[in-house]
Every structure is written in structure tokens, then in C-alpha cells.
Design a protein around this nucleic acid. Structure first.
Lengths: 164, 164
DNA sequence: CTTGGAATGTCAACAAGGCTGACATAGTGT
DNA sequence: ACACTATGTCAGCCTTGTTGACATTCCAAG
């Protein structure tokens, strides 16, 4: 074998990549496990969690905007929103300037659920972050960002800007 | 505000954790996008991909073993296996010592599909890894490992040992 | 040896949450 | 007036998770 170079670098071998793939699979399971557990008793699922999360992040967002972020069809999102609105967790207000648009807000009850789910998920991530330290976290974030589709990266960065 | 300390460290703030959560969400979408695209034409989905992946990793594994790794019910896995076996991608052999067990192997056709899916997923990960360099990759892996459930970490490490 | 329980795997039926397609309604803008 | 946009809804399909019921096989205690 020649000196390591190009594709031969240790961290780019097929075996290393395979391990990364499996780590991603198992870690994502852990990542969603706590909110899933909380929601399983209620008639909600992961889809509701995602909707509530992003409405909380960007209060007043429109349905269309949420659609782009979540990457599902409007029929699919609508099913989820309908139940959330019916149960009084989300409020849908007709737009002032453009009355076709619906702006979405969490009610107090909605915020409470969001906080409950968010706390659980953050607790796990905080524990992981604390175990490995800031340099590892920086690397983690860099890899995740590089792994996104470019249009999703745009959404992600928009969300970062509006809140940080 | 006092000096940053304890929970006050920059990388442990709620806002940083929230960004990490969203990065994980978007990155996982990218992570599965390529195999999903390849499979959507066929009558297979992500569940088939996962089964094929782990059978490829551990040829001769039993159904029960696969169950533990994948974390789904045996009925759910069975449906996937049934179609894979019917289509000649997976072979199921009755155990010699214990005839209750079924040992699973990929056929040549199964290996071909696995390679196709795996290549696509590795390509994305390789590109991300190359962009950010080995130190970031090391941090990425550390965080993922810290984020797994402990029982899943055991599975993950077992898989690493048997193959590396 | 037999018999009961544990382990393993299969089949059936149901629910969540994706998807497409078609269509209604209402508001915007030319 | 007319085309286009944003949203909501209905119907129906697919994948993939769930539980319940059941068959087969193994093993160990009586």
C-alpha cells in the first residue's frame, strides 16, 4: 500500500464511514426517544412534536413556511395542525396584510407541551455535550451542517439567524 | 450576569442546544435522502434498507438478534423480511443446533442492492467528512456516541468490534 | 418419558403518518 | 373579469410501526 493520501485517509475509509452511518442511526433513535416516550400516551406523535417545535421557534409563521421547513405535504401537515388547533394547543390567525395566509401561534397550553418535550430533548443533548466538551461539539455541528441538503441548510441557517 | 460557569458555558446554553437539535433534524433528513430516493421506485422503504444493511454487516444473524439491533417488534421486521426473502434478496436458513432460529444471509442480488444504497449514503458522509476534517469528525462521533441509549451503545460497539 | 413453559417465528388486523390527486374557498393582483 | 396563490378538505393508497393469536421447537422438571 502507498502512503495514506486522498481517499486513503483513515477517517475516510469505507469502514469508518460505515461506523459513522451506524452511529448516526443509533444516535437519532436516542435523540427522539424521550419525546416519543412522553407523547405515546397522548394521541400525538413525532409529527406533532415537530410542528409544535417550529411554531415555537418562529411564532406567527405561515402554513406555507412551516411546510418548507418540515418537508412534508400540506395534507400531511394539515392533519397534524387540525388536531393541535382542535385541542387548543395552536392558534391560527388570519393574516392582516394577506388574508389568505394563516399565522400560527402556540397557546399557553401549547407552550407547556413544547417546553416539556424540549426540556427532555435538551437534557439528553446537554448531557452528551457536557461529556465530550466544546471542541467535540463544534466538530459535531460542522459535520451535521455539511451533511444537510443545501436547501435544508438554508432553512436551518435562517432559523439560526432569527433567534441567535 | 456572573462569569460563565457550569450551565452557563456557551455551548451548553438552551439556544445552542436548540440549534443542535435542529441541526440533527435536518442532517438526518439529508442522511436518509439518497437511499430513500433510490428505494422509492421499488416497493421498498427505509425499513428494508436497515434490514439489508445489518444483515450485510453480520451475515448469519438470527431474526431475534436483528430485532434487538433494529429496535422494532418482530412482527414489523417479519413483514420486511418476508418481502425481501420472497424477492430473493435475503436467504433464511433454519438453524442447525436450534431449529427455531432462522439465520439470515444476503443473496448476490441482495448484496448488489446493499452496495448501491451503501455507496450513496457513504458518498454523502464522505463528502461531509472531507469538508470538515478529521478533528471535527472525531468530535462528531463522540457526540453521537454520547447521545445513544446505553443499550444501543452496546449494540453499536459490538458491531464495531466484529468488523474493525 | 411426558408435559409445561420459554423461545422463536408467522399471520392478521389496526393506527400513525407519509404520499398523490381532485376540488373548494377566499384573497391578490393585473 | 380573470388568473394565480394560499389554504383547507376529502378520498385513497403505501410503508411501517403496534398488539393479539397461534404454531413450532427446545428444554427442564416432574
Amino acid at each position: 500500500m502507498a502512503e495514506p493520501s486522498g481517499e486513503q485517509l483513515l477517517y475516510l475509509t469505507d469502514e469508518q464511514l460505515r461506523q459513522g452511518i451506524e452511529a448516526m442511526f443509533f444516535a437519532y433513535r436516542g435523540f427522539t426517544a424521550d419525546p416519543d416516550r412522553i407523547l405515546q400516551d397522548q394521541s400525538y406523535g413525532r409529527a406533532h412534536h415537530r410542528a409544535v417545535h417550529f411554531i415555537n421557534c418562529a411564532p406567527g409563521t405561515t402554513v406555507n413556511n412551516l411546510l418548507n421547513i418540515l418537508g412534508v405535504t400540506k395534507q400531511s401537515l394539515n392533519r397534524v395542525l387540525r388536531t393541535l388547533i382542535a385541542d387548543g394547543l395552536v392558534e391560527s390567525r388570519v393574516g392582516r396584510s394577506d388574508k389568505r395566509e394563516r399565522h400560527l401561534y402556540l397557546t399557553e397550553e401549547g407552550k407547556a407541551l413544547e417546553a416539556q418535550l424540549s426540556d427532555a430533548q435538551r437534557a439528553r443533548m446537554r448531557s452528551a455535550y457536557r461529556k465530550v466538551g466544546p471542541e467535540a461539539v463544534a466538530g459535531f455541528r460542522q459535520v451535521l451542517e455539511a451533511m444537510m441538503d443545501s436547501d435544508m441548510r438554508r432553512n436551518y441557517q435562517t432559523l439560526r439567524e432569527t433567534k441567535s
